[in-house]
């Protein structure tokens, strides 16, 4: 199958999974913004996306996308290292027009995954997971499982978490500013004109997404009673 054994095919897998994850981030960010305006509204969303069947299916889908994207990143990076050869250059210069992010996508990706692990520990493990365990009859306290605002307040009251989340989001910004147009280039949807268009569209979209996430972190870090 060409998707799995050709270089272009493997990159198509990276592109499609990457674009899908960008769309998820847009959706996630839009929901987060509610927490700035209304704590009650945000908790309603948490309730709605708890351990319901559709939320669980979507979560499994997302997990699959992340795994596919990460596994193929490892495969491609190892192949590329091999193709580069054992002997490196003694003298290297970054050519002009080359974005720093584009040459460090794997490292940025690892930071994003670590940030995601922290995020799952802070929120998912206390919310959806608890709810699922409760439904399965485990002896857990599920009274706060849909109280997202409680966990936002708790997490961002700690300056260390705020700093870690900011680092995570900045790394994600760099990753996506390259990733977005790169994905469309790989899918073949680019030429002399669309190359620049996708870069601008990508930069605007990604900046909006990251600013949206940062806004929630900032609001709750500065004023823990926001949305009350």
């Amino acid at each position: 199958m060409w998707l799995f054994n050709s270089s272009v095919g493997k990159k198509v897998i990276m592109s499609v999974s990457g674009i899908a994850l960008v769309l998820f981030l847009l959706f996630h960010m839009s929901m987060n913004l509610v927490a700035i305006f209304s704590a009650e509204g945000y908790n309603m969303i948490c309730e709605f996306l708890g351990a319901n069947w559709y939320a669980l299916i979507a979560t499994a889908g997302l997990a699959a996308l992340v795994v596919v994207h990460f596994v193929y990143a490892i495969i491609l990076t190892l192949q590329n290292k091999k193709a580069r050869g054992g002997q490196g250059y003694a003298y290297t210069v970054k050519p002009k027009n080359v974005e720093w992010a584009s040459q460090n996508m794997f490292v940025l990706g690892v930071i994003v995954i670590l940030g995601m692990a922290l995020h799952l520990f802070n929120f998912w493990a206390n919310m959806q997971l608890v709810e699922v365990l409760h439904m399965l009859g485990a002896n857990v306290d599920a009274s706060l499982a849909a109280d997202g605002v409680h966990y936002i307040k708790e997490t961002f009251a700690c300056p260390v978490y705020v700093a870690l989340y900011v680092i995570w989001l900045v790394a994600l910004w760099f990753h996506l500013t390259h990733g977005f147009w790169s994905a469309l280039q790989t899918l073949g949807w680019a030429n002399q004109i669309w190359f620049n268009r996708w870069r601008v569209i990508g930069n605007v979209l990604v900046t909006i997404i990251i600013l949206g996430f940062l806004a929630v972190v900032a609001v709750y870090a500065v004023c823990p009673c926001a949305g009350c």
Binding site: S7, K11, Q79, N80, P95, E99, S102, Q103, M105, S182
Partner: peptide, 14 residues
Amino acid sequence: GFGNCTNTRACEAE
């Protein structure tokens, strides 16, 4: 055994 393109644009610059 050539590698997989990640669109860094170094080729175009050089």
